[in-house]
Amino acid sequence: MATQAPGMSDQIAAQSVIEELLRLQQAVPPRSGFARFWGYSPLGADSVAWYRGAQGEIEVGRILSRLPPEWRVFHALPIGKAGADIDHLVLGPGGIFTINTKHHRGKKIWIAERTIMVDGHKQPYLRNSKFEATRVTKMLRERMPQLPPAQAVIALVGPGQITIKKKPDEVRVMDANDLRRWLLKRPVSLIEADLVDLAAIVDAPATWTALTSGPTPSLMAKFAVIDGEFRTARVRRTVWKLLRIVSLTAILVIAGPSFITAVFQDFLAPH
């Protein structure tokens, strides 16, 4: 019995990022029982950014999964060379959207017409997102010339503070929590018949620059193991930190004000 070749709709959110994370983690020795006890992170130094990236794309994938059924969502679409991909491509009545996920939990984001800065560091996000949308527009119009241009979107996951000096003209930047509502408010530009044809084009692996075998069944399970170990390590580090604070506080309380005064006097006394 012949099996159907996987389509791009079989790709999962953060697929390529998780694959790279797992590849990097193969070179990281398992943490010892002692290290796990004290809450050492299971991630290698090179793995941290990929882990954070996977978290962000998975979160945006969850948000997009709550769109109505007339919307189609694709993830991790390979484009260009050197393993580049489009995090999320969304097709719906409101148009075509290339969504670039950036996970910057707690960071200060500063946005101007041509610049995005994260905690004071300039990032090429606007340029890259615009390039993705332009490339997708060109690819899809080769098959359906009447299509509207793809809209570039940057979805920020967990930002601390967002300061907008001036909105960029060609790229929409927003908190990922606002993404679904914003998409649903876009004016209608595609009818259902066009969406059906467009989704078929996007779903075909031959449309893209690299063939895909689809996600392995254990991909998310392997990520879940790493994610669980990371979260457990973080909790343990927090517990040990709290215990140190409690212990120090108890010592100071038991010792009393006279002990604290004596320590400061000895510290300030000339030697």
Results as ranks from 00 to 15, higher is better:
78 P>Y: 01
70 E>L: 07
211 L>S: 14
32 S>W: 09
256 G>K: 08
246 V>P: 03
179 L>K: 05
242 L>A: 11
13 A>E: 03
172 R>C: 14
63 I>M: 02
251 I>S: 13
202 V>E: 00
262 A>F: 06
244 R>T: 07
146 Q>M: 15
160 G>C: 05
150 A>R: 00
181 R>T: 08
254 I>L: 11
65 S>Y: 05
261 T>E: 15
146 Q>F: 03
24 L>R: 12
242 L>S: 14
227 D>G: 02
77 L>Y: 04
32 S>I: 09
76 A>N: 10
213 S>Y: 07
182 W>A: 11
31 R>G: 01
41 S>P: 04
180 R>C: 05
23 R>A: 10
110 W>C: 05
209 T>W: 13
257 P>M: 14
45 A>V: 12
83 G>W: 07
86 I>H: 02
236 R>T: 00
6 P>I: 04
41 S>M: 07
68 P>I: 01
199 A>Q: 06
119 D>G: 05
115 T>V: 10
36 R>A: 03
111 I>N: 01
35 A>V: 04
115 T>K: 15
13 A>I: 01
240 W>K: 07
157 V>L: 08
131 F>V: 04
117 M>K: 13
117 M>T: 11
138 K>P: 00
271 H>L: 13
152 A>C: 06
31 R>E: 02
121 H>F: 11
84 A>E: 11
271 H>W: 13
184 L>N: 09
46 D>A: 15
180 R>T: 04
109 I>R: 04
105 R>W: 01
219 L>Q: 02
112 A>G: 15
38 W>Q: 05
185 K>E: 14
108 K>L: 14
159 P>I: 03
180 R>Q: 09
232 T>F: 08
126 L>F: 01
70 E>G: 08
220 M>V: 10
261 T>Y: 14
214 G>M: 08
135 R>I: 06
39 G>T: 01
40 Y>C: 10
77 L>R: 03
104 H>W: 10
161 Q>T: 10
191 I>M: 10
29 P>Q: 08
49 A>N: 06
144 M>S: 08
71 W>P: 04
35 A>Y: 04
205 P>V: 08
128 N>H: 10
241 K>V: 05
246 V>G: 12
12 I>A: 02
122 K>H: 10
192 E>K: 14
48 V>G: 00
222 K>R: 15
